[in-house]
Design a protein around this nucleic acid. Structure first.
Length: 980
RNA sequence: GGGCCCGUAGCUCAGUUGGUUAGAGCGCACGCCUGAUAAGCGUGAGGUCGGCCGUUCAAGUCGGCCCGGGCCCA
């Protein structure tokens, strides 16, 4: 590791502490350089030798102008059919398949999509250049709610009624909408420089995809893994539909609250004899659906005996009420109970097995069932009574408790919000008008303890703004723990999958461990139908491979619309009669669609393979695509559809906050295309640590643009100094100076980094290594040192030939290594040097000769550069004192140890330090010589170079004093050769 | 509220099994060059490693709490 010298110590001061403070000028004036002398002199009658200097020549401009240049390169790629050429070139090679997670075909791309696609493109191009055949088939997720919304919104604008449109017409419009945004996004991805089979992407709405998705569903159907169950969903009684979380908004709502007494009919504990369990609810209308009372097993309860009550109290003295210990006061206050006595404390677990009676028991002959007290861990003491009214139909927790204890899940409320026959006494009544009738019935049966109102946050429909209800509805599921043991298979698959970063494994694992059965149905229109029939008599779902095949074939030729446009009897064939069956019109959740792409795309397209080598998506997809693909594939094929999963974080703003329209901190990738260009965005992508959240903002982008300029100028310097290079000029490595061989050694370091860091997907480290190599090793050192040889050596000088040969290798390596990221700039540079070439992207990473590697040389040159740093440090002080400007005005004496002297044998330190002369000495350094704090054994006495400045190479040499035209002997020879 | 995770110089990142004055590049400041020039070179200044408490001879590295932030759930 190189460290920069930072603290220069003046030994003079150290050795003479008693002299007191000296001014900087006093300290710095050495006796050997009288300040009165001119800083340097040139030959009096020098002619202009500029034209004889081999200055860099290139048409590769310093200014990138990416916003204009990139589209031109992209057009060229299109013309030459780059993607097809890539496939051709790589034919027969080992495949590397990154399977594209399909973005949703709605709206324009955002920063996150851009980041994702760029990372994918970098991975794919790296693998291709590492020698694999890396096809990339982009895809789109096309079905689903957001597109339905868009179309419905257009209807509303036109004043049309959605229900008046046929489902086929509606689906056609959804399809056209998706198609439109596929085109838009495709153009945007191409603008980012992403290569892929853009002419033949996959979509989940293609007819063969719809058929394929249905075929995947059928595998679950035929194996018996598809079942119809119920699930509590948010339901709008206005729109008569279930709503997704995204369609729900929360507003304050005033609810009538009630405290209700349930007679305990079978106590589990003597204390409960004759007592009443008290519940509290904000939804009186759910009372007919009550089937249980939940208690907290670890909470404390007690039975109170009412002794005195206030004027309007519904409580009666002598009544015994079971309540949560911490909530007694609060309930007493609400119920107007002024005096009471409290019985012994009962743990929640003591309530186990207690049975109560529904307060409506006997009402119109209904409610005769038992109401058990059940344990639930969500019961709290912050509100209510410590006993929770449980209506399995009307809430997530309630529903889960119902499932857990096998409670009846009644259909008490119809889709329009009216009570069904299963709510005796209230049939036909609308639930939003039910509070008072319910309360009246409770009062009549002496079951009401108190009432009140509460303002709280309550879910409302995003569209109608009407309050929502929870309602259990019929849904389709794939079991996690059925005969197929899907959960176990999925967990096993997770264990054998590589996750990058590794923590992704834990994340998806804990989700799979605890998730409920997979709900795959939606009550919508734009999707692949759950095209199954249920036998009316038995309620069994029809499992007949012939029916399945008829449906699948119809989907293949007509699309999934066939489910609605064809006569259902056609699918059933001759063996079944339609009137015996219920045709299911639910559609599949889009996660099932995209979760099936491994089957509909990887298995179907010959250029791909199953399983994929890699899935690469944002970390939200642990619950999304990684998850659904895993379940689908484990359910149908017994293993994960991928060998490895790479996740990246989210793009956040400069302060680390998420980007959102409401915060006004969003950046559009397409805007950045106009101001910066794709290569800047791509460089930003790889220089960030994608494992975490990725910041972007002005300062970050400015920094990226600076790094880009460094890389670009490195290429430009190489191109400029490589002008006219031809094979006869190439020099064998054995004949090269050590400096050149050191550069080649460094290339082998970088080559290693390219291969290893690409294997670990550690792009940030890789691009820092390349950038630092360009900045530190090349620009600040090698290029600076070799400028003299490039510009002034005669063209046949071995030194110059060696250096130009190295530039040639550098160019080959850097253009290849940068190509996956700076896709445009690398191409531009490559074509600048090889105008007849096809594309830099058709290349592979160069295979470097093993002989270039020379660890001993690297170690030696680490020391050489340390010594050099002491010299540049010394010169800097001279510069500060205005004794020199350019380093060529100096010819320092460098005092070194004997071991360093032998180390430097054959190395021209003056050349490396860019001084006109340099004397190496093992004699003890004078006390005032410069030393670097962190470099031992080196001291530098700065001296001015003697002689005159060569008018051509600008070195200050004594020999120039003898020259007739003001140039040195080397330049004389070089000029003569040019003239000849 | 729960699960997973993050917080090292202005920015982007390194910091190995806890062990000498915490590193790099960029940016910044100052200076140089004017034959890479809307370039190039050199030198320098920047960090109580989010905060607090603890474990330890020793903590950026381990533990707890808090603050800030992200994703996914509720």
């Amino acid at each position: 590791m190189r460290t920069r010298e930072r603290h220069f110590v003046r030994p003079l001061l150290r050795s003479a502490p008693g002299r007191g403070e000296l001014s900087p000028a006093e300290r710095a004036v050495p006796s050997y350089a009288p300040p009165s002398l001119p800083r340097y002199r040139s030959f009096p009658m020098s002619t202009d030798f500029r034209t004889t200097v081999f200055l860099p020549q290139t048409d590769f401009p310093m200014r990138a102008d990416l916003p204009n240049r990139e589209p031109r390169l992209q057009a060229r790629w299109q013309e030459i059919g780059l993607y097809e050429r890539l496939r051709e070139t790589a034919k027969g090679r080992e495949k590397f398949v990154l399977h594209d997670g399909p973005p949703y075909a709605n709206g324009h791309i955002h920063m996150g999509t851009a980041l994702n696609k760029i990372l994918k493109d970098v991975v794919v191009k790296n693998q291709q250049m590492l020698g694999k055949d890396a096809p990339y088939v982009p895809g789109w997720d096309c079905h689903g709610l957001p597109i339905e919304w868009q179309i419905e919104q257009e209807y509303r604008k036109k004043g049309m009624d959605k229900d008046a449109v046929s489902i086929a017409d509606f689906r056609r419009e959804c399809r056209e909408h998706a198609l439109r945004f596929i085109d838009i996004q495709r153009g945007e991805f191409i603008r980012l420089g992403v290569s892929g089979d853009w002419a033949n992407p996959y979509t989940t709405m293609a007819f063969d995809a719809e058929a394929g998705i249905f075929r995947e569903l059928s595998k679950f159907l035929l194996s018996g893994s598809l079942y119809r169950g119920k699930k509590s969903v948010m339901w709008s009684v206005v729109e008569k539909t279930a709503l997704a979380e995204a369609e729900v908004e929360y507003h304050d709502h005033t609810s009538v609250t009630i405290w209700v007494k349930f007679d305990i009919v079978r106590p589990s504990h003597a204390e409960l004899e004759g007592a009443k369990a008290v519940i509290w609810t904000t939804t009186p209308w759910t009372m007919p659906a009550n089937r249980a009372i939940a208690y907290g097993p670890l909470m404390d309860y007690a039975v109170i005996t009412v002794q005195a009550v206030g004027a309007d109290s519904l409580a009666k003295p002598g009544e015994r009420l079971l309540l949560g210990l911490d909530l007694i006061e609060e309930v007493a206050k609400a119920a107007g109970i002024t005096e009471w006595s409290t019985g012994p404390v009962l743990k929640g677990t003591a309530l186990e097995g207690t049975i109560a009676r529904h307060p409506f028991a006997g009402l119109e002959g209904g409610y005769g069932f038992e109401v058990p007290l059940l344990s639930a861990d969500y019961v709290t003491t912050d509100q209510g009574t410590g006993l929770v009214h449980t209506a399995p139909t009307h809430g997530e927790d309630d529903f889960n408790t119902g499932l857990k204890y096998g409670l009846e899940i009644p259909d008490t409320v119809a889709g329009d919000g009216t009570y069904t026959e299963e709510a005796p006494g209230f049939v036909g009544l609308h639930v939003f008008k039910a509070a008072e009738p319910v309360i009246e019935a409770l009062v009549a049966r002496e079951a009401l303890l108190a009432r009140g109102t509460l303002v709280h946050s309550y879910p409302h429909s995003w569209r109608s703004k009407a309050p929502l209800i929870f309602r259990a509805t019929a849904q389709w599921f794939i079991p996690m723990d059925g005969e197929d043991h899907l959960r176990q298979k999925a967990l096993a698959a997770i264990d054998t999958t590589r996750f990058v970063p590794a923590r992704g494994k834990n994340r998806i694992r804990s989700m799979v461990e605890s998730r409920p059965d997979w709900n795959i149905s939606r009550q919508r229109s734009w999707g692949v139908p759950i095209a199954v029939f249920v036998e009316k008599a038995s309620g069994a779902v029809l499992r007949d491979p012939e029916v399945v095949e008829r449906i699948a074939q119809a989907f293949e030729t007509e699309g999934a619309d066939a489910w609605w446009t064809r006569d259902p009897q056609f699918f059933l064939g001759d063996r079944y009669r339609l009137e015996d069956f219920e045709k299911i019109d639910d559609i599949l959740d889009v996660w099932f669609d995209s979760g099936s792409t491994h089957a509909t795309v990887l298995e179907q397209r010959p250029e791909l393979k199953w399983p994929a080598d890699l899935y690469l998506e944002g970390s939200d997809q642990h619950r999304g695509w990684f998850h659904s693909s895993l379940l689908e594939s484990c359910g149908t094929r017994g293993r994960a559809p991928y060998d490895a999963v790479l996740t990246h974080g989210f793009v956040v703003d400069a302060e680390g906050r998420k980007m959102s329209k409401s915060l006004g901190n969003t950046l559009s990738p397409m805007d950045l295309m106009k101001t910066h260009g794709a290569d800047i965005l791509r460089l930003w992508t790889v220089s960030s640590d994608y494992a975490e959240d990725i910041r972007i903002g002005k300062q970050v982008l400015d920094g990226t643009a600076d790094a880009y300029r460094r890389l670009r100028n490195t290429l430009r310097y190489i191109l400029g100094n490589l002008a006219g290079f031809n094979e006869t000029e190439r020099l064998e490595v054995e004949k090269m100076p050590e400096l050149e061989r050191w550069v080649l050694h460094r290339l082998t370091d970088l080559d290693r980094a390219v291969r290893e860091l690409n294997a670990s997907f550690d792009f940030a480290a890789l691009y820092k290594a390349i950038h630092d190599f360009c900045a530190v090793d090349l620009s600040a050192f090698y290029f600076d040192v070799r400028k003299d040889a490039f510009y002034c050596d005669s063209k046949d000088s071995l030194r110059r030939r060696a250096a130009r040969t190295v530039l040639d290798y550098l160019f080959d390596c850097l253009t290849a290594w940068l190509a996956p990221v700076l896709v445009h700039t690398a191409e531009e540079a490559w074509l600048s040097r090889h105008p007849d070439a096809d594309s830099v992207h058709l290349r592979r990473y160069p295979e470097l000769p093993a002989a270039w590697r020379d660890e001993a040389l690297a170690l030696k040159w680490q020391r050489v550069r340390e010594i050099r740093r002491v010299i540049t440090g010394a010169l800097e002080l001279e510069r500060k004192e205005k004794r020199i400007g350019a380093s060529l005005q100096a010819a320092p004496v460098v005092h070194v140890l004997a071991k360093d002297e032998s180390l430097l044998k054959g190395i021209d330190m003056a050349e490396l330090a860019i001084t006109s002369g340099l004397e190496l000495s093992t004699a003890p350094a004078p006390a005032n010589a410069f030393k670097a704090e962190d470099v031992d054994g080196v001291a530098v006495e700065p001296r001015l170079a003697a002689g005159l400045k060569c008018a051509r190479c600008w070195q200050v040499l004594v020999e120039v004093e003898q020259s007739s035209n003001g140039i040195c002997q080397r330049c004389e020879a070089a000029v003569a050769k040019v003239a000849a």
